Simulated assay, not measured.
Amino acid sequence: MRSELNLQAQQLHVQRGGKEVLAGVSFAVAQGEIYALLGGNGAGKSTTLATFLGFLTPARGRVLVNGQDVGADLLAARRATAYLPEAASLYEHLDARENLRYFLALAGAPSDAAGIEAALGRVSLAEGARGLKLRGYSKGMRQKVAIALAILRDTGILLLDEPTSGLDPTAIDEFHALVRGLADVGKTILMVTHDVYGACQVADRVGLLRGGHLVDQFEAPAGGRIDTETVHRAFSARTAIA
């Protein structure tokens, strides 16, 4: 593993509604690495992201962003990260460029025209679509605008929540290629998903969550990919957690 750890969960216990959703979860994500947190509904995936974003406070344990406890400096953690939710909240009455300019202004980030066009080109959003209102966009096109915004914010860390849910196979392949390219230039990426195949195709490591416990981890061999069948068998297992 690379030496610089940009994201760390250390014996993380989180409760929601009086129920323990995460029970002693520990993992770390290094610079330039894609870590996929895999699990079914209710496994604790989105709770993990919410804790890194400071929306939830751990009952025990802690989360660190760039070595800093999120609870100790929430603003610094959020400045260092870009978050892509499953359904990005973009404005349907604005076009792609207008959405990017607006949200960059909110974040206090530069929004020059050349940079916006470069980012939209990088996510392969067709030039003819960039001036159209988002009300006519497919989900895949909306995701491209959202990831372009993450690129333009130029943070070192990306948090992705079910990023390929509802996308067609071509859009999924394009998204994975884009994310892989971002990791290859040093971005640190934590994605949560229930898609076994997608996780194994793009991630350097996969962590399997079940019932709030991190029950297994899988690592890609040098120059290769994580074996889908192995992970699928583990994902499908119904072993009870004591």
Rank of each mutant, 00 (worst) to 15 (best):
Y35E: 06
L53H: 02
A28G: 14
G40T: 14
S46T: 14
G32P: 02
F27D: 05
L56M: 09
T48M: 07
H13N: 07
L53P: 03
H13D: 07
T47A: 12
A9T: 10
V29S: 09
E20Q: 10
R62Q: 15
G40I: 11
H13T: 02
G18R: 00
L38K: 03
V14T: 10
L56F: 12
Q15F: 01
T48V: 01
G44D: 11
L56S: 06
H13Q: 04
F52K: 13
G39K: 01
A59P: 01
Q11G: 07
V29H: 11
P58I: 02
H13A: 06
V29Q: 08
F52Q: 12
G32R: 04
E33L: 04
F55E: 13
R60F: 08
E33S: 01
T48L: 15
L53V: 06
Q15E: 03
S26V: 08
L22M: 01
T48W: 14
G54F: 08
L53I: 05
Q31A: 14
T57Q: 12
S46N: 12
K45E: 04
G54L: 06
L37Y: 10
K45M: 14
L49N: 00
V21W: 02
G17Y: 00
A43H: 03
L49I: 15
G42C: 03
L38P: 09
L49F: 11
G24N: 08
T51W: 00
V14M: 05
V21N: 01
L37F: 13
Q15M: 03
H13L: 13
G39E: 05
P58W: 04
G17W: 03
